[in-house]
């Protein structure tokens, strides 16, 4: 009985991590389509990411209910609970940012497409690495450092790319309106935030691992 419950919980946890990965990839594809002005495909990815966000929410709630109702993992559930909440926050951020693209329709000059794409890729890499670190945490709690370093690497790369993009935008005389520059900065900031949130999760994972090595 207890084996069955734990197996189902483990499967749900991995399903949640898979969804986190997938939303990051869908986000990347969505941004690509937006930059390529492929509205139809963009809309497809926006619908998909909204669906995935809802599914992730429901799985997270299911896991949390089982953890507390069946008193499973009494020593670890606090950390698992926080980890799920933080990863869910990353998922929400991907969905919200893609939705912002569809609402605010930022006018991104073509010469910045490469910048935005690179920034998105770096942020998505950070998410993918934090998902790997989370998976490692439940499999080998004391051995997450390797993956955590990669999260930090991609977060720094995203920061560097975001700064480069913002500097270029604010020094670009072809963009006359300051409001437009602010608008571009706003989107760069929000994409970069995905990497920052991943870094926050990695920091916590690092502490969870230390707790288990004592």
């Amino acid at each position: 009985m207890i084996f069955k419950k734990t197996k189902s919980l483990e499967e749900k946890f991995h399903k949640f991590l898979n969804l986190t990965n997938e939303t990051a990839l869908v986000f990347l594809e969505g941004v690509k389509c937006y930059l390529e002005k492929n509205q139809e495909e963009f809309q497809h990815y926006l619908t998909l990411i909204t669906k995935q966000e809802k599914e992730a929410d429901s799985i997270r709630r299911e896991i949390e209910t089982v953890l507390y109702e069946k008193t499973l993992l009494p020593e670890t559930r606090g950390d698992i609970f926080d980890l799920l909440e933080d990863l869910d926050d990353v998922i929400n951020q991907t969905e919200e940012t893609l939705l912002e693209f569809s609402i605010e329709i930022p006018d991104i000059p073509e010469k910045y497409n490469e910048h935005f794409l690179k920034l998105t890729e770096f942020a998505v890499n950070a998410i993918n690495q934090v998902v790997k670190a989370s998976r490692k945490f439940v499999q080998e709690p004391t051995n997450v450092e390797h993956n955590i370093h990669k999260v930090y690497f991609w977060e720094k790369e995203a920061d560097r790319q975001s700064e480069k993009l913002k500097r270029a935008v604010f020094r670009d005389d072809s963009i006359e309106k300051l409001s437009k520059k602010f608008h571009l900065r706003y989107f760069a900031l929000h994409i970069d935030m995905l990497a920052d949130k991943s870094e926050d999760v990695a920091d916590k994972l690092s502490i969870y691992a230390i707790k288990r090595s004592i």
Binding site: I2, F3, T6, K7, L9, E10, F13, L72, L73, E75, T76, I80, F137, V138, Q139, E140, P141
Partner: peptide, 12 residues
């Protein structure tokens, strides 16, 4: 190399 979930069951 037991996962947290399996470790919980075996420990119980």
């Amino acid at each position: 190399k037991l996962s947290i979930f399996r470790l919980d069951v075996y420990t119980r």
